[in-house]
Amino acid sequence: MGELEQKLVWHGRTKRKAWMVWGGWFAITLLTIYCWMEMTEDTIWFFVLDAPVQAADLIDRMFPPEWSYIHLLYKALWDTLNIATLGTLLGVILAFPVAFLAARNTTPSVVFVRPIALLIIASSRSINSLIWALLLVTILGPGILAGVIAIGLRSIGFVAKLLYESIEEVNGTSVEAIESTGASRFQTINYAIIPQILPAFLGITIFRWDINIRESTILGLVGAGGIGLFLSSSLNVLAWPQVTLIILVILATVVVSEFLSAKVRELLI
């Protein structure tokens, strides 16, 4: 009897679950349709229908790329590389303490310090580097510095989040063992935690560097230095052959950096 009842209850639950799943899909569909209508309210469909013609026209104007323009891009590319690398360094240096303040097992206070560290991480992660750059250009003036700091600020959250997760996964008895020798808090971090998270830390840093190369190519659009500045000025004068060349250079850089970071990570791990 008891068994039968249990079976019935269980059956009822799956049925309800099935209804909830269907309801969920239905709600998503409705939401999508609503959003679509809301979004396309101001769309001028003539432009959309005209797009293939525009595209053909644009491609016609973009090719061939203006190869002779390339000698102007070397310096810009070097700047872009510096923005990404120095920005990553800055972000990593700042993220390191934040991660330790955010990890449950190393934070000095779960109630006061940890929420602040998590807030820093969330703010940094939610705001794209281009927005940081936009802000910093108005504060510091245009230039590479704004780009470096923008990349750094965006990287804090990314690096700190992954790092604090790996700190929380550290082997607890090793930490206990070091504590039991009478080591201070910093000694425990230095001896028990850092050796354990070091591989993850290096991996995260290189991963972020790779992403930052990609992001730093466009920071120039808002004046924060690098190859994006040239992209912006070529776009402004509608010099499409130059734009093509810049895009090709950016693509090549991204591919090379991806290859490099994959190689280095292979070496380290």
């Binding site: 090793s174 020798t181 080591a183 001896y191 354990q196």
Partner: peptide, 22 residues
């Protein structure tokens, strides 16, 4: 409960941590 990524010697010396400044 050794720190596996440290050398054997560092693991032994970690017994001295309580006696040393950071």
């Amino acid at each position: 409960a050794l720190v596996e990524r440290l050398s054997v010697m560092e693991n032994v010396l970690s017994g001295r941590l309580g006696y040393l400044p950071f």
